[in-house]
Write a protein that binds this DNA or RNA. Structure first.
Lengths: 115, 115
DNA sequence: TTGATATGCAACCATTTGGTTTCACATTAG
DNA sequence: CTAATGTGAAACCAAATGGTTGCATATCAA
Protein backbone atom coordinates (compact mmCIF):
# COMPACT_ATOMS: atom_id res chain seq x y z
CA UNK A 1 0.00 0.00 0.00
CA UNK A 2 1.27 3.44 -0.87
CA UNK A 3 0.72 6.52 1.27
CA UNK A 4 -0.48 9.52 -0.71
CA UNK A 5 0.44 12.98 0.39
CA UNK A 6 -2.21 15.60 1.02
CA UNK A 7 -2.84 17.77 -2.04
CA UNK A 8 -2.43 21.50 -1.98
CA UNK A 9 -5.80 23.20 -1.65
CA UNK A 10 -5.71 25.57 -4.58
CA UNK A 11 -3.63 25.63 -7.73
CA UNK A 12 -2.65 29.05 -8.98
CA UNK A 13 -3.09 29.76 -12.66
CA UNK A 14 0.65 30.24 -13.00
CA UNK A 15 1.38 26.91 -11.42
CA UNK A 16 -1.02 25.11 -13.73
CA UNK A 17 0.35 27.06 -16.70
CA UNK A 18 3.86 25.86 -15.89
CA UNK A 19 2.84 22.22 -15.44
CA UNK A 20 0.96 21.97 -18.73
CA UNK A 21 3.56 24.05 -20.53
CA UNK A 22 6.28 21.71 -19.30
CA UNK A 23 4.32 18.68 -20.47
CA UNK A 24 3.81 20.17 -23.93
CA UNK A 25 7.15 18.89 -25.23
CA UNK A 26 7.94 15.29 -26.13
CA UNK A 27 11.52 15.39 -24.82
CA UNK A 28 10.35 16.75 -21.48
CA UNK A 29 7.58 14.16 -21.23
CA UNK A 30 10.18 11.48 -21.90
CA UNK A 31 12.40 12.82 -19.13
CA UNK A 32 9.47 12.78 -16.73
CA UNK A 33 8.58 9.24 -17.74
CA UNK A 34 12.13 7.98 -17.23
CA UNK A 35 12.78 9.72 -13.95
CA UNK A 36 9.48 8.62 -12.46
CA UNK A 37 10.73 5.06 -12.53
CA UNK A 38 14.47 5.61 -12.21
CA UNK A 39 16.60 8.53 -11.07
CA UNK A 40 19.14 9.71 -13.62
CA UNK A 41 21.94 12.23 -13.71
CA UNK A 42 21.67 15.10 -16.14
CA UNK A 43 24.42 13.74 -18.38
CA UNK A 44 22.79 10.30 -18.38
CA UNK A 45 19.67 11.97 -19.72
CA UNK A 46 21.59 14.21 -22.12
CA UNK A 47 23.14 11.15 -23.78
CA UNK A 48 19.70 9.86 -24.68
CA UNK A 49 18.57 12.77 -26.83
CA UNK A 50 19.91 14.18 -30.07
CA UNK A 51 20.55 17.64 -28.78
CA UNK A 52 23.24 19.42 -26.80
CA UNK A 53 23.82 18.90 -23.12
CA UNK A 54 22.78 22.52 -22.52
CA UNK A 55 19.47 21.99 -24.30
CA UNK A 56 18.62 18.99 -22.11
CA UNK A 57 19.71 20.99 -19.09
CA UNK A 58 17.25 23.72 -20.05
CA UNK A 59 14.44 21.21 -20.43
CA UNK A 60 15.19 19.96 -16.94
CA UNK A 61 15.10 23.52 -15.62
CA UNK A 62 11.62 23.94 -17.13
CA UNK A 63 10.49 20.67 -15.54
CA UNK A 64 11.95 21.67 -12.20
CA UNK A 65 10.20 25.05 -12.38
CA UNK A 66 6.92 23.22 -12.86
CA UNK A 67 7.64 20.87 -9.96
CA UNK A 68 7.60 17.85 -12.27
CA UNK A 69 11.12 16.81 -11.27
CA UNK A 70 13.46 17.55 -8.39
CA UNK A 71 17.26 17.66 -8.30
CA UNK A 72 19.34 15.92 -5.65
CA UNK A 73 23.04 16.50 -5.31
CA UNK A 74 25.20 13.40 -5.34
CA UNK A 75 28.88 14.27 -5.46
CA UNK A 76 29.63 16.04 -8.71
CA UNK A 77 26.40 14.94 -10.30
CA UNK A 78 22.75 15.85 -9.78
CA UNK A 79 20.21 13.09 -9.76
CA UNK A 80 16.89 14.00 -11.39
CA UNK A 81 13.82 12.45 -9.86
CA UNK A 82 10.29 12.64 -11.27
CA UNK A 83 7.69 14.07 -8.89
CA UNK A 84 4.26 12.43 -9.03
CA UNK A 85 2.67 15.24 -7.01
CA UNK A 86 2.79 17.62 -9.96
CA UNK A 87 1.29 14.92 -12.18
CA UNK A 88 -1.55 14.58 -9.73
CA UNK A 89 -2.23 18.29 -9.77
CA UNK A 90 -2.76 18.13 -13.51
CA UNK A 91 -4.92 15.03 -13.13
CA UNK A 92 -7.04 16.78 -10.53
CA UNK A 93 -7.78 19.62 -12.90
CA UNK A 94 -8.61 17.36 -15.83
CA UNK A 95 -10.84 15.25 -13.61
CA UNK A 96 -12.71 18.41 -12.60
CA UNK A 97 -13.28 19.19 -16.27
CA UNK A 98 -14.61 15.73 -16.95
CA UNK A 99 -16.92 15.98 -13.97
CA UNK A 100 -18.24 19.26 -15.35
CA UNK A 101 -18.95 17.66 -18.66
CA UNK A 102 -20.66 14.69 -17.08
CA UNK A 103 -22.71 17.12 -15.05
CA UNK A 104 -24.00 18.68 -18.24
CA UNK A 105 -25.00 15.32 -19.59
CA UNK A 106 -26.71 14.40 -16.35
CA UNK A 107 -28.73 17.61 -16.45
CA UNK A 108 -29.64 16.86 -20.04
CA UNK A 109 -30.73 13.35 -19.10
CA UNK A 110 -32.82 14.75 -16.25
CA UNK A 111 -34.45 17.20 -18.64
CA UNK A 112 -35.34 14.45 -21.06
CA UNK A 113 -36.62 12.28 -18.23
CA UNK A 114 -39.11 14.97 -17.28
CA UNK A 115 -41.42 13.99 -20.12
CA UNK B 1 -25.74 6.29 -17.88
CA UNK B 2 -23.40 7.92 -20.33
CA UNK B 3 -21.95 6.13 -23.31
CA UNK B 4 -18.20 6.66 -23.70
CA UNK B 5 -16.68 6.64 -27.14
CA UNK B 6 -13.80 4.35 -27.95
CA UNK B 7 -10.42 6.03 -27.50
CA UNK B 8 -7.91 6.34 -30.29
CA UNK B 9 -5.22 3.70 -29.97
CA UNK B 10 -2.09 5.83 -30.09
CA UNK B 11 -1.49 9.51 -29.48
CA UNK B 12 1.14 11.13 -31.66
CA UNK B 13 3.67 13.36 -29.95
CA UNK B 14 2.38 16.32 -31.91
CA UNK B 15 -1.17 15.68 -30.83
CA UNK B 16 -0.18 15.48 -27.18
CA UNK B 17 1.99 18.57 -27.57
CA UNK B 18 -0.97 20.51 -28.90
CA UNK B 19 -3.32 19.38 -26.15
CA UNK B 20 -0.99 20.27 -23.29
CA UNK B 21 0.15 23.46 -25.03
CA UNK B 22 -3.48 24.53 -25.39
CA UNK B 23 -4.15 23.83 -21.73
CA UNK B 24 -1.13 25.89 -20.64
CA UNK B 25 -3.05 29.18 -20.68
CA UNK B 26 -5.60 30.31 -18.11
CA UNK B 27 -7.89 32.00 -20.65
CA UNK B 28 -7.97 28.88 -22.79
CA UNK B 29 -8.64 26.64 -19.80
CA UNK B 30 -11.51 28.93 -18.87
CA UNK B 31 -12.96 28.67 -22.36
CA UNK B 32 -12.76 24.89 -22.19
CA UNK B 33 -14.40 24.86 -18.78
CA UNK B 34 -17.27 27.08 -19.91
CA UNK B 35 -17.93 25.33 -23.18
CA UNK B 36 -17.87 21.89 -21.61
CA UNK B 37 -21.01 22.76 -19.72
CA UNK B 38 -22.57 25.27 -22.10
CA UNK B 39 -22.06 26.09 -25.75
CA UNK B 40 -21.20 29.71 -26.47
CA UNK B 41 -20.69 31.86 -29.53
CA UNK B 42 -17.27 33.38 -30.07
CA UNK B 43 -18.50 36.89 -29.30
CA UNK B 44 -20.20 35.65 -26.12
CA UNK B 45 -16.83 34.34 -25.00
CA UNK B 46 -14.96 37.42 -26.19
CA UNK B 47 -17.11 39.62 -23.97
CA UNK B 48 -15.92 37.71 -20.90
CA UNK B 49 -12.22 38.44 -21.21
CA UNK B 50 -10.26 41.67 -21.09
CA UNK B 51 -8.70 41.32 -24.48
CA UNK B 52 -9.69 41.95 -28.06
CA UNK B 53 -12.16 39.83 -29.97
CA UNK B 54 -9.34 38.76 -32.27
CA UNK B 55 -7.22 37.54 -29.33
CA UNK B 56 -10.07 35.36 -28.04
CA UNK B 57 -10.65 34.13 -31.56
CA UNK B 58 -7.01 33.06 -31.73
CA UNK B 59 -7.25 31.20 -28.43
CA UNK B 60 -10.24 29.34 -29.81
CA UNK B 61 -8.26 28.44 -32.93
CA UNK B 62 -5.54 26.96 -30.71
CA UNK B 63 -8.11 24.98 -28.75
CA UNK B 64 -9.74 23.76 -31.95
CA UNK B 65 -6.36 22.69 -33.31
CA UNK B 66 -5.86 20.61 -30.19
CA UNK B 67 -9.33 19.10 -30.48
CA UNK B 68 -10.36 20.57 -27.14
CA UNK B 69 -13.31 22.41 -28.68
CA UNK B 70 -15.32 22.12 -31.86
CA UNK B 71 -17.14 24.81 -33.86
CA UNK B 72 -20.70 24.46 -35.07
CA UNK B 73 -22.29 26.91 -37.47
CA UNK B 74 -25.54 28.44 -36.38
CA UNK B 75 -26.62 31.21 -38.69
CA UNK B 76 -24.09 34.00 -38.58
CA UNK B 77 -22.56 32.78 -35.38
CA UNK B 78 -20.38 29.79 -34.49
CA UNK B 79 -21.17 27.87 -31.36
CA UNK B 80 -18.09 26.62 -29.51
CA UNK B 81 -18.45 23.30 -27.74
CA UNK B 82 -15.92 21.71 -25.39
CA UNK B 83 -14.79 18.22 -26.40
CA UNK B 84 -14.28 15.79 -23.51
CA UNK B 85 -12.45 13.30 -25.75
CA UNK B 86 -9.35 15.49 -25.86
CA UNK B 87 -9.49 15.88 -22.10
CA UNK B 88 -9.56 12.11 -21.76
CA UNK B 89 -6.52 11.74 -23.97
CA UNK B 90 -4.55 13.92 -21.61
CA UNK B 91 -5.93 12.02 -18.62
CA UNK B 92 -4.91 8.73 -20.17
CA UNK B 93 -1.34 9.91 -20.51
CA UNK B 94 -1.12 11.26 -16.98
CA UNK B 95 -2.65 8.08 -15.63
CA UNK B 96 0.05 6.10 -17.41
CA UNK B 97 2.69 8.25 -15.71
CA UNK B 98 1.18 7.66 -12.33
CA UNK B 99 1.04 3.93 -12.96
CA UNK B 100 4.72 4.01 -13.84
CA UNK B 101 5.52 5.73 -10.59
CA UNK B 102 3.40 3.33 -8.58
CA UNK B 103 5.21 0.51 -10.36
CA UNK B 104 8.51 1.81 -9.07
CA UNK B 105 7.18 1.92 -5.55
CA UNK B 106 5.77 -1.56 -5.87
CA UNK B 107 9.14 -2.88 -7.01
CA UNK B 108 10.78 -1.12 -4.11
CA UNK B 109 8.28 -2.64 -1.70
CA UNK B 110 8.94 -6.07 -3.16
CA UNK B 111 12.65 -5.54 -2.76
CA UNK B 112 12.25 -4.60 0.87
CA UNK B 113 9.90 -7.53 1.43
CA UNK B 114 12.62 -9.93 0.30
CA UNK B 115 14.40 -9.68 3.65
C1' DT C 1 48.54 17.81 -8.91
C1' DT C 2 46.49 17.24 -13.18
C1' DG C 3 43.28 15.83 -16.38
C1' DA C 4 38.68 14.23 -17.22
C1' DT C 5 33.86 14.54 -16.10
C1' DA C 6 29.45 16.95 -14.52
C1' DT C 7 27.17 20.98 -14.10
C1' DG C 8 25.83 25.90 -14.56
C1' DC C 9 25.29 29.90 -17.03
C1' DA C 10 25.70 33.66 -20.38
C1' DA C 11 25.24 35.33 -25.05
C1' DC C 12 23.29 34.68 -29.25
C1' DC C 13 19.77 33.35 -32.81
C1' DA C 14 15.47 31.83 -35.36
C1' DT C 15 10.84 30.70 -34.59
C1' DT C 16 6.61 30.72 -32.09
C1' DT C 17 3.29 32.90 -29.17
C1' DG C 18 -0.02 36.14 -27.69
C1' DG C 19 -1.43 40.27 -28.21
C1' DT C 20 -2.85 44.43 -31.23
C1' DT C 21 -5.36 47.09 -35.22
C1' DT C 22 -7.54 46.99 -39.50
C1' DC C 23 -10.21 45.43 -43.26
C1' DA C 24 -13.37 42.19 -45.66
C1' DC C 25 -17.31 39.42 -45.82
C1' DA C 26 -21.70 37.03 -44.32
C1' DT C 27 -25.90 37.17 -42.02
C1' DT C 28 -29.61 39.10 -39.53
C1' DA C 29 -32.74 42.93 -37.94
C1' DG C 30 -35.49 46.95 -38.96
C1' DC D 1 -32.19 48.14 -48.79
C1' DT D 2 -29.33 49.49 -45.08
C1' DA D 3 -27.29 49.24 -40.79
C1' DA D 4 -25.66 46.42 -37.18
C1' DT D 5 -23.66 42.15 -35.72
C1' DG D 6 -20.57 37.97 -35.98
C1' DT D 7 -16.67 36.02 -37.91
C1' DG D 8 -12.24 35.47 -40.42
C1' DA D 9 -7.81 36.79 -41.59
C1' DA D 10 -3.80 39.71 -42.53
C1' DA D 11 0.03 42.63 -40.97
C1' DC D 12 2.56 43.94 -37.32
C1' DC D 13 5.04 43.79 -32.72
C1' DA D 14 7.21 42.45 -28.18
C1' DA D 15 8.28 38.67 -25.47
C1' DA D 16 9.00 33.81 -24.72
C1' DT D 17 10.81 29.39 -26.39
C1' DG D 18 14.11 26.05 -27.87
C1' DG D 19 18.07 25.48 -29.70
C1' DT D 20 23.26 26.63 -30.22
C1' DT D 21 28.44 27.59 -28.66
C1' DG D 22 31.61 28.89 -25.32
C1' DC D 23 33.42 29.46 -20.84
C1' DA D 24 33.72 28.92 -15.72
C1' DT D 25 33.61 26.05 -11.82
C1' DA D 26 33.34 21.84 -8.95
C1' DT D 27 34.44 17.17 -8.14
C1' DC D 28 36.54 12.83 -8.93
C1' DA D 29 40.28 9.59 -10.55
C1' DA D 30 45.02 8.41 -11.19
Amino acid sequence: MVAYQAQQRTLSDDEVDRIFRALADATRRDIVRRTLTEESSISDLAHRYEMSFAAVQKHITVLEGAGLVTKHRNGRERRIRGNPDAIRKAQTLLNAYERLWRGRIDRLDALLAED
